[in-house]
């Protein structure tokens, strides 16, 4: 057996070529990555799960992925669904409650609250009520529905004060976008989520 020939043959193998090209792969991540993991685990355990009171028109799919923590909201947001949210000021009819639950503060200064999916005149709306009006500073408050893994989000509109009704876009599947998120946004021309979530909870 010719050892040199055998070595040469082995070196040509694509497996070997790839391993060789990649070199020593191990590369410790910087410390802030671990801090973010810890923060994510902590935040996730604080997210309050909402229970639907009755079946919504859009039942959650059977294979629903688990929830995704807030800290990823700012990063790697995939399909951003933009929809012109309309805050409905008039509330002639409080509507039929299809689902509801509580919203939990994600930062110490944020209030708790609740969210309901109501049906008014054949239209589904998300009704948000906070215990106190958050202080958005120089920004404003925006209401979102998120996928559990934050791979997509739908904006519902601007919240002022402690409560608001937001028309749900027709065809929106609450099983796909079950997380209610209220964030502080700036008027900076960027339609995406700024990553500063104040309050979050699950509905749908």
């Amino acid at each position: 057996m010719n050892d040199e020939l055998e070595e040469a043959r082995l070196r040509e193998d694509r497996v070997g070529v790839l391993l060789r090209r990649a070199g020593v792969v191990e590369q410790p991540p910087p410390p802030h990555v671990w801090e973010a993991v810890v923060e994510g685990v902590r935040a996730e355990s604080e997210v309050t799960r909402l229970r639907p009171r009755s079946q919504t028109s859009a039942p959650p799919s059977a294979a629903r992925p688990s929830r995704w923590p807030l800290l990823l909201a700012a990063a790697a947001v995939g399909a951003l669904v933009t929809w012109a949210g309309v805050e409905l000021a008039d509330r002639p009819d409080s509507g039929l409650v299809l689902a509801s639950g509580s919203l939990a503060p994600l930062v110490p200064s944020a209030p708790a609250g609740s969210a309901e999916v109501v049906e008014v005149d054949g239209q589904q709306r998300l009704r948000v009520t906070l215990d106190e009006a958050p202080e958005p500073g120089e920004g404003y408050l925006e209401v979102w529905l998120l996928r559990p893994d934050v791979s997509g989000l739908v904006t519902l509109g601007v919240l002022e004060g402690t409560s608001g009704d937001f028309l749900l876009p027709p065809g929106l599947d609450l099983g796909e976008y079950p997380l209610v998120d209220i964030s502080v946004e700036r008027v900076d021309g960027d339609p995406g989520h700024g990553g500063d979530s104040l309050v979050r909870g699950e509905v749908g």
Binding site: V25, E26, Q27, P28, P29, W34, A76
Partner: peptide, 19 residues
């Protein structure tokens, strides 16, 4: 984490490897 991060860095670059 060194393996996960290192593989991710090879695949998507250093910045996104952290994410």
């Amino acid at each position: 984490s060194p393996l996960v991060h290192g593989l991710a860095a090879r695949a998507v670059g250093p910045t996104e490897a952290e994410d």
